[in-house]
Lab assay of single mutants.
Amino acid sequence: GSVVKEKKEKALIEVRPYVEYYNELKALVSKISSSVNDLEEAIVVLREEEKKASEPFKTDIRILLDFLES
């Protein structure tokens, strides 16, 4: 629970300088966080969101995924 939350919060802070739609990304992460149990599940849902998103938000999600998977 809290470790996953920390990882996601740290990821958002780390990617902030590189993303165009930070507030939207943060809102998406919050929405996903409330419906998943762990980081792996969150990553799966983020990948689905990435497929549906259009640029440049798609790239923002990709940047976040790269950080979460590192």
Rank of each mutant, 00 (worst) to 15 (best):
S30D: 15
N23W: 09
V45P: 05
K26Y: 13
V3R: 03
E9I: 07
V29G: 00
E6R: 03
T59F: 08
L68D: 00
E14G: 07
K26R: 10
K58W: 02
E50Q: 13
V45T: 07
E40G: 08
V36N: 05
V4S: 08
P17V: 05
K31L: 09
F57D: 01
L25V: 02
V44A: 08
I13D: 13
L65Y: 03
R47W: 14
A27Q: 10
L64Y: 15
K5L: 14
N37G: 12
E55F: 10
E41N: 04
R62Y: 05
E14H: 14
R62P: 00
Y22P: 02
K26M: 06
E41W: 03
L46W: 02
K51F: 09
S33L: 11
A27I: 10
K52E: 08
A27G: 05
S33P: 05
L65G: 07
V3Y: 06
E14R: 06
F67P: 00
I13R: 12
A53M: 05
I32F: 03
K5V: 09
A53E: 10
E48G: 12
P56L: 05
S34G: 09
A42M: 15
V36K: 03
S30P: 01
L12K: 01
D60F: 05
K7L: 15
K8G: 15
E6T: 08
N37C: 08
F67N: 13
D60C: 07
P56T: 09
S2L: 08
E24A: 07
E41F: 04
L12Y: 02
V3C: 15
L46T: 01
E6Y: 03
E41G: 08
L68V: 05
L68S: 01
K51Q: 10
E9W: 15
Y18D: 02
D60R: 01
E40Y: 08
K7R: 11
I13Q: 14
V4Q: 07
I43D: 01
I63G: 02
E69Y: 08
V36C: 06
S33N: 06
L12R: 01
V36E: 04
K7W: 15
S34K: 07
E6S: 09
E6H: 06
K51S: 12
R62L: 09
R47F: 09
A27E: 12
E69G: 12
D66K: 09
D66G: 10
E49P: 00
K10M: 13
F57H: 02
E40I: 08
L39K: 03
E41I: 05
P17Y: 05
P56F: 04
L12W: 04
K10G: 09
P17T: 03
K5A: 14
A11I: 12
A27D: 14
E49R: 03
V3N: 11
A42E: 07
N37L: 05
S35F: 14
R47E: 09
E55H: 10
E48L: 13
K5C: 15
I61V: 06
S35H: 10
V19I: 06
V3A: 14
F67K: 11
L68K: 00
G1K: 04
K26F: 08
E49G: 01
D38E: 08
I61K: 00
E14T: 06
I32W: 03
L68A: 02
S35W: 07
I13K: 12
E49S: 05
L65R: 07
L68R: 01
V19E: 01
R16T: 02
E49C: 07
E24T: 04
S33D: 09
S34I: 09
L64E: 00
E48I: 13
S33Y: 12
E49K: 05
K7M: 15
L68Y: 05
L39M: 14
E6I: 09
F57T: 02
V4W: 15
V19L: 03
R47P: 00
S2D: 13
K58D: 02
E69R: 10
V45Y: 13
E14W: 06
E55V: 08
V3P: 11
E69N: 11
Y22H: 04
E48P: 00
L28E: 00
V3S: 14
D60S: 05
V19P: 01
K7S: 10
P56V: 04
V36S: 07
K52V: 07
V45M: 14
A27K: 04
V19M: 02
V15P: 01
Y21S: 07
Y21T: 03
S2I: 09
E49V: 05
K8D: 13
L68W: 06
P56Y: 07
D60L: 03
E48R: 09
A11C: 15
E49A: 04
I32L: 04
E55T: 06
K8A: 15
N23F: 08
I13N: 10
S30E: 15
T59S: 13
Y18K: 05
V36R: 03
D60G: 04
E6F: 11
I43P: 00
P17H: 04
F57Y: 08
K8S: 15
Y18A: 03
I32R: 01
D66H: 14
E40M: 07
E24G: 03
S54P: 06
D38S: 13
G1E: 12
